[in-house]
Amino acid sequence: MAISVDVRNLSKNYGEVEALKDLTFSVSKGELFGFIGPDGAGKTTLFRILTTLLLADSGTASVEDLDVVKAYKQIRRIIGYMPGRFSLYQDLSVEENLRFFATIFGTTIEENYDLVKEIYSQIEPFKTRKAGKLSGGMKQKLALSCALIHKPVVLFLDEPTTGVDAVSRQEFWEMLQRLKSQGITIIVSTPYMDEATLCDRVALIQNGRIMQISRPAEVVSTFPLGLFSVSSADVYRLLHDLQKLPKEHSVFAFGQVVHLSYREDELTRDDVIDFLKEKGHEEVTVEEIKPNIEDCFMELMQKE
């Protein structure tokens, strides 16, 4: 498949802080590619380098075969970028913002209306409202409309769903799927692990390093350990007691249950049940489960 974004051995330091450490990856044309990781992982630094707003210390990067340093002007014409912080003009109206972005790219709202129609029509009834007065979900839709109005080939979305409620988040991902179906390459970052499953491929990123790149289903299927979901009448005590299990393992709370990952040759379900009964736990259940992305992320973090 043809390559849209190609990154080779990219590094960036801020003083003594290594923000990106030797990143290498590529994104195919038309792919929905996710960077999943917490604040401080290096997501924004990477996005700023790829959108030609920041220079790397070493390594190379290209977007649609254009080098991010030599051909930055051409890249800027063909990409859309939605930064993490709301960056539209608060004192301009919804429509004025969109018209402004269309004009600087030498186009008009009318010319590319079809592309933004589905998103923009939801906020169009409020087109005379100042952008600063919009709710979180509406700001997000306007920002996406502005990033799309010049019909970009590649779209960079830096944490578009952070701080947005679950309903707006779901709607936003539905919009991304529709954009993807129109052939736009989309690179998106998020700290929400559950959003990984909505991407074609994901890079799990932590401390400036990519820990794993694969399809979401592969992330889960390559989990190297067994996993139990354990519950009892007292979850807090359960968590602390399970940490004392005399075998190599790790234990993390998942709401009302605890996930216990273990080496399959070292621990059985009965071992866990016996151990907890000995500790006086009641209503104990131990169930073999498949890991989710968060289990995998934490396992990779511990290996690092």
Binding site: G37, P38, D39, A41, T162, G163, P191, M193, Q206, Y236, L239, F252, A253, E294, F297, M298, M301, Q302
Partner: peptide, 24 residues
Amino acid sequence: DEPTGGVDPITRRQFWEMIYEAAR
């Protein structure tokens, strides 16, 4: 009020353990 945004999943759990402890 939305205390845990943006941190890694392990830190997020340590934070919730502190919440449990406070409640205890």
